[in-house]
């Protein structure tokens, strides 16, 4: 039994399927060296973002670290614009200046893709601070990985966010590994959510392999933030099927562990719920999947056909002041 509607499940299915197929394609293109640089895949963690987005309003804010393709897509940035950014093309959502780790879209309230572990945590608090300052009702969801919680930035931001009752939801996507270092090798306290206790911040752990539990936790936290009661810290336990980045063969964990999580695949779970409830037939879901695959393939074609930015665009967008006198030889 579930309290969520057919529409919610169908949206989750489509969103998570898009993330999954998009990133599988990304991995393939990376192998073909169409995509360069650092590239971190989200496959396996999709329920976290999907469950978040269904619990938020369209004017709420999202910020995350560098594992950001799925977050960008879920905020409504087109597959074309995200893929083109991966390609480094001028049609990308950051005009080819960001790449995999630095997706941005002001229009979609997506505040980026940040590359310094934990650096986005005070930024998330600051984005929410600005809404509170203006008397807005928006909330900000600030994502981080399990590695980021060991940064001092988290503790400074948590303290001030709680002190000033900033409307921010801090979400730790605990996938068990900070790059290759497991959580247990970095701390004596395995329950990451308990960091919130030190600041009297409401906090709990959430099963991140189900969009339902994520949605419920985010909805509760968002309501608290909108009421003026301040931040929440959620440790959402999830799993990435791939390595930390494209260059990581993930030898630090067992095949069995990966398979165990794949048995609880969040996308399969949504598919099963839809079928069990007869909200759609196998054929209808396959048709939906094919449509998504076509969208992904179209994004590749779009990116292939898009131009790179001119080298001279390097000097654009560094200062908003026109004609800044750069030193040039």
């Amino acid at each position: 039994m579930t309290s969520f509607t057919k529409e919610t499940y169908m949206r989750w299915f489509e969103q998570m399927m898009l993330m999954r197929r998009f990133e599988e394609k990304t991995a393939q293109l990376y192998g073909q060296q169409k995509i360069k640089g650092f590239c971190h895949l989200y496959i396996g963690q999709e329920a976290v973002v999907a469950g978040t987005m269904s619990a938020l309003n369209s004017d709420d804010r999202i910020i995350t670290a560098y594992r950001d393709h799925a977050h960008a897509l879920a905020c409504g940035i087109s597959a074309n614009a995200v893929m083109a950014e991966l390609y480094g093309k001028v049609t990308g959502c950051s005009k080819g200046k960001g790449g995999s780790m630095h997706m941005f879209s002001k229009e979609h309230n997506f505040f980026g893709g940040h590359g310094i572990v934990g650096g986005q945590i005070p930024l998330g608090a600051g984005i929410a601070f600005a809404d509170m300052y203006r008397g807005g009702k928006q909330v900000t969801v600030c994502y981080m990985g399990d590695g980021a919680v060991r940064q001092g930035a988290l503790h400074e931001a948590f303290n001030m966010a709680m002190l000033w009752k900033i409307p921010v939801i801090f979400v730790c996507e605990n996938n068990g590994y900070a790059m290759g270092t497991s959580v247990e090798r970095t701390t004596n306290q395995m329950d990451i959510y308990k960091i919130g206790l030190a600041y009297d911040m409401p906090c709990k752990e959430v099963d991140g392999m189900q969009a339902e539990t994520v949605h419920e936790a985010i909805a509760e936290a968002a309501e608290r933030a909108r009421k003026g009661d301040g931040p929440t810290f959620l440790e959402i336990r999830t799993y990435r099927y791939r390595g930390h980045s494209m260059s990581d063969p993930a030898k630090y964990r067992t095949k069995e562990e990966v398979e165990e999580y794949k048995m609880r695949d969040p996308l399969e779970r949504v598919r099963k719920t839809i079928l069990d409830n007869k909200w759609a037939t196998e054929a209808e879901l396959e048709a939906a999947e094919e449509k998504i695959m076509a969208e992904v393939l179209a994004s590749v074609e779009f990116s292939e056909n898009s131009p790179y930015p001119e080298g001279s665009a390097l000097w654009e967008d560094v200062y908003s002041e026109p004609n800044y006198p750069f030193i040039t030889e």
């Binding site: 804010r61 608090a125 984005i127 600005a130 300052y133 001092g152 400074e156 001030m160």
Partner: peptide, 26 residues
């Protein structure tokens, strides 16, 4: 005190909060 804001001794944190606020229009 809404506009003149004392902070704890946490330069990394309050500098970051200010940057975030600037991203969001302040």
């Amino acid at each position: 005190d809404k506009r003149i804001i004392d902070t704890p001794i946490a330069e990394l944190g309050f500098a970051g909060i200010a940057v975030g606020a600037a991203m969001n229009g302040l």
